[in-house]
């Protein structure tokens, strides 16, 4: 396994399965009375969040604390960061503090890569710009495995929405491909990258046609700033063509599940009745996030600096 987790594409099939299997054991800790393991006692995990994301930050924080790591939340607000300190200087500060791992969320694609050039700690990408969000893809795969009750070889997954700007889509396409699933990306052409011949995924502009044989339909949020930039004419039309409503849910096979990385815009990409249905996994995804992040922190922080673990 690589020393850092920057891209889902860096994970071999073996690595990915090891993380998912480990996460399954970590999940049992959440059911115990003592929800804490001593594994990372004396290690320091820094949450370096340049974007507000209470959900992801909290998930990493709970994960690190369950493993007994010391957690420092270094949020951009109210710190030296907001006073104009550069990412490099912040990295040097964290290095001097002896951080063992830095979990970074940043609006700039590639910021986690840059961080690895300036400090020794293990770097975990918690979402960088429009690039990647590998732990989200891992928790999505974990949730799929759990719900489908099997490994993902041959599973059919549709990812629907703003693929162009989605770090969740980029990470999911790579990880799902690694795990043997078939991915179809569904979006209007304006919300797909122009050049994606090397992406291991099919592309469709027609949601109805894509739903007939899926095992998983993953809906992505469309951010407010896209709505005024002519990526599509109106919210109403987008919702009509690419929203998942009750009618479309009925087109899917009965066991197929609906996923959403959140936060959802009800009535836009997903109808309230679909989000609340038993087919939706949105709450499980949040819970599984902690287990997967425990697995990632455990595996990265207990391998030696060459990236070698044993077993």
């Amino acid at each position: 396994m690589n020393r850092h987790l920057l891209s889902a594409g860096d994970l071999s099939r073996e690595d990915a399965l090891k993380i998912l299997d480990t996460a399954e054991q970590m999940a049992t800790v959440g059911d115990r009375e003592v929800k804490k393991l001593p594994t990372l006692r004396g290690r320091t995990v820094v949450n370096l969040f340049y974007e507000d994301s209470t959900r992801t930050r909290t998930s990493f924080e709970v994960a690190a604390k369950r493993l007994s790591a010391d957690v420092i939340n270094f949020s951009a607000k109210g710190s030296s960061v907001s006073k104009g300190e550069s990412l490099k200087d912040t990295a040097l500060t964290l290095h001097a503090m002896g951080a063992d791992a830095v979990v970074i969320r940043h609006a700039a694609s590639g910021a986690p890569h840059r961080l690895t050039q300036w400090l020794d700690a293990v770097v975990v990408n918690a979402g960088d710009g429009t690039h990647e969000h590998p732990t989200q893809a891992l928790l999505d795969a974990f949730t799929m495995r759990q719900r489908l009750g099997r490994d993902l070889d041959g599973a059919k997954v549709a990812i629907v929405g703003d693929i162009l700007h989605s770090r969740v889509a980029r990470s999911n396409v790579q990880l799902l491909h690694t795990l043997g699933a078939h991915v179809t990306l569904v979006a209007p052409p304006t919300l797909l990258p122009r050049d994606m011949q090397t992406w291991p995924a099919q592309v469709s502009y027609d949601l109805d046609a894509a739903l007939g044989d899926v095992d998983v339909c993953m809906m992505l949020r469309v951010q407010a700033e896209r709505m005024t930039a002519s990526y599509f004419p109106t919210v109403r039309e987008y919702s009509r063509r690419y929203g998942l409503d009750g009618r479309r849910l009925a087109l899917m096979p009965k066991e197929a599940i609906v996923m959403h990385p959140g936060p959802m815009v009800r009535g836009m990409e997903i109808a309230g009745e679909v989000a609340d249905s038993s087919r939706a996994t949105i709450v499980e995804q949040v819970r599984n996030g902690v287990s997967v992040r425990m697995a990632v922190l455990y595996l990265l922080l207990t391998q030696d600096s060459t990236g070698q673990g044993t077993a």
């Binding site: 480990t22 399954e24 054991q25 393991l37 595996l299 207990t302 030696d304």
Partner: peptide, 21 residues
């Protein structure tokens, strides 16, 4: 009883696959 996560020598031995407790 899987004891991997309780070991005091993880950093020397490296991450190991966990077994169910």
């Amino acid at each position: 009883l899987d004891i991997t996560l309780y070991r005091d020598d993880l950093r020397m031995r490296g991450a190991r696959a966990l077994e169910p407790t």
